[in-house]
C-alpha cells in the first residue's frame, strides 16, 4: 500500500469515527453501540496501516493473498455485528411487550377504580 493510500484510509477511518461521535452527541447512537463501532474502526486502521499485521493475519488464516484474509475477517466481523444487533432488537421487542402489557394493566386498573370512560378514538 502506498503512502497516499494509507493516508486516505486513515482519513476515511477518522472521518467515520467522527461521524460515530456526532451520532452519539445527537443521541442517535447509544454509547455501547458507538464503542463497538469505534473499536472496529480502530481495529481496521491498525490492520491496514501498521506494517506486518495484515501479513501476520494472512499467514494465520492460511490465505494466499492479504485481500482474501481481509475479506474473511470483514465477513466474520460483520456477521458477529449483525448477530449482536439481532439480539439487541429481539431484547428490545421483549421489553416493548412487557411495557405495553404493563401499560394496559395499569390503564385497566385505573379505569376500574375511577369508572372513567375510555378514549373512544384510541379503540378504533
Amino acid at each position: 500500500m502506498t503512502f497516499g493510500q494509507r493516508l486516505l484510509v486513515a482519513f476515511i477511518v477518522l472521518g467515520l469515527i467522527a461521524l460515530v461521535m456526532r451520532l452519539v452527541s445527537r443521541r442517535q447512537l447509544s454509547v455501547n453501540q458507538a464503542l463497538i463501532w469505534i473499536t472496529l474502526l480502530l481495529g481496521s486502521e491498525v490492520l491496514l496501516l501498521v506494517p506486518g499485521v495484515l501479513a501476520f493475519v494472512t499467514r494465520l488464516t492460511g490465505a494466499v493473498l492479504p485481500v482474501s484474509a481481509l475479506t474473511l475477517l470483514a465477513l466474520i466481523t460483520l456477521t458477529l455485528l449483525f448477530l449482536q444487533l439481532s439480539v439487541a432488537v429481539s431484547r428490545m421487542r421483549e421489553r416493548q411487550r412487557e411495557l405495553a402489557r404493563s401499560m394496559a394493566l395499569i390503564e385497566r386498573r385505573l379505569r376500574r377504580s375511577t369508572g372513567a370512560p375510555q378514549n373512544e378514538s384510541s379503540r378504533t
Binding site: 416493548q96 405495553a100 394496559a104 385497566r108 370512560p117 375510555q118 384510541s122 379503540r123 378504533t124
Partner: peptide, 22 residues
C-alpha cells in the same frame, strides 16, 4: 385496528386494551 375495542366497551365488557398489537 377496527372497532372491536369500542364495541366491547359499549357492551360493558371487562377489556384490557394493548396499546399496540403484541
Amino acid at each position: 385496528k377496527d372497532r372491536s375495542g369500542g364495541i366491547l366497551e359499549s357492551l360493558g365488557c371487562d377489556v384490557l386494551h394493548h396499546p399496540i398489537n403484541l
